[in-house]
Amino acid sequence: MHKVIGSLCFAAAFLACAGVAEAHHSFAAFFDSEKTRTITGKVTKFLFVNPHGTIELDVKGANGKTEAWRIETNAPVLLRRLGWTKESISYGQTITVVGWPARDGANYLRLQRATDEAGKQIGRSMATGDQQ
């Protein structure tokens, strides 16, 4: 009996701890690494902060309507070593992004690489498997 109560107490305490301990973003849970998607659009926002950067794009869909997309980047602290800076992308600039799509079908990608309007790559590519 004491053992059961002890076990229940531990479980309750551990659940409480776990709730505050878990905080890290999981690539595998959110993105499908077996698929890629390419989109082109106009930059409406670029946030170059850790743990992940964000690019927001207005993308014209096949029906002519504009859709809002968001792209998540690797940790900017890693991107800096790949030639990225917070000035790498400007508001209003048209860019093309290749990325892993969100598993839930949302207009959300994880960045693999990006090119500017002239086709020049922005920074250097993420290596396969670099998911942080």
Binding site: F14, L15, A23
Partner: peptide, 20 residues
């Protein structure tokens, strides 16, 4: 706990910057 875990639960302002 692992089976009940939902990734989206972590994506909150108070949790996203807590280090492992």
């Amino acid at each position: 706990i692992a089976k009940a875990w939902k990734p989206a639960d972590d994506m909150t302002l108070d949790k996203v910057c807590a280090p492992p």
